[in-house]
């Protein structure tokens, strides 16, 4: 056999950024996708109960959180450009902004959780809350992990590291824009 087969550039080589981060992104999308599909499937068994339960969530707060996250993602994307342009000062300022908006997201999310807890609503109250706590809780955990990751990659400030950290952060964005309409709006 000749070398041609192994040396031909594969589609994977076109992938921007770190391959392992893409493996993670696809895996996360599969998990959240399956979770949201399961949520909608169980909803068929009790539409009225789900609608009633959904009323307890902070729909407006979640809408604001969408704006917060996509803006934070924008800052992270600009930070990658700053890293590539070799401007570490601008990069760190942008990353700090992205992290701060992540914190804003968590505060709004926390307010919703606090209200739910105050109303005595737990995982077990209704199938809707099992899913909403699970899905948004997993997502919020990723927001926290992303904030830490962004802070870590801003220290060496190499374009490659910043790009990888920002990719994780965009994945958190991506999951939220799919999760928000399904859990809060439908």
């Amino acid at each position: 056999m000749t070398d041609q087969a192994t040396d031909r550039p594969s589609a994977l080589d076109q992938l921007p950024g770190e391959l392992m981060m893409w493996v993670l992104i696809v895996s996360e999308l599969l998990v959240f996708g399956a979770g949201l599909a399961a949520f909608l499937a169980v909803r068929i068994t009790d539409p009225a109960g789900f609608a009633e339960a959904q009323g307890h969530l902070h729909r407006a707060g979640a809408g604001v959180n969408t704006i917060v996250l996509v803006t934070s993602g924008w800052l992270a994307a600009l930070a990658v450009q700053a890293a590539e342009a070799g401007r570490p000062g601008r990069l760190r300022a942008l990353v700090a902004g992205a992290i701060a908006l992540g914190a804003v997201f968590l505060v709004l999310k926390g307010a919703e959780y606090a209200d739910l807890a105050h109303a005595g609503i737990t995982f077990e109250t209704h199938a809707f809350f099992t899913f909403s706590y699970l899905l948004t809780g997993f997502h919020a955990a990723h927001v926290m992990a992303g904030m830490i990751l962004l802070a870590v990659v801003a220290v060496p400030a190499s374009p490659r590291a910043v790009e990888t950290g920002a990719a994780f952060w965009h994945m958190v964005d991506l999951v939220w824009v799919l999760l928000f309409p399904v859990v809060y709006l439908l």
Binding site: A34, A38, F123, T130, L134
Partner: peptide, 18 residues
Amino acid sequence: TPGYWQWIGSIFSSLEVV
């Protein structure tokens, strides 16, 4: 164990095929 394990277990272990 609490009921949410049914969903965590189902979703993640389905991916163990991968």
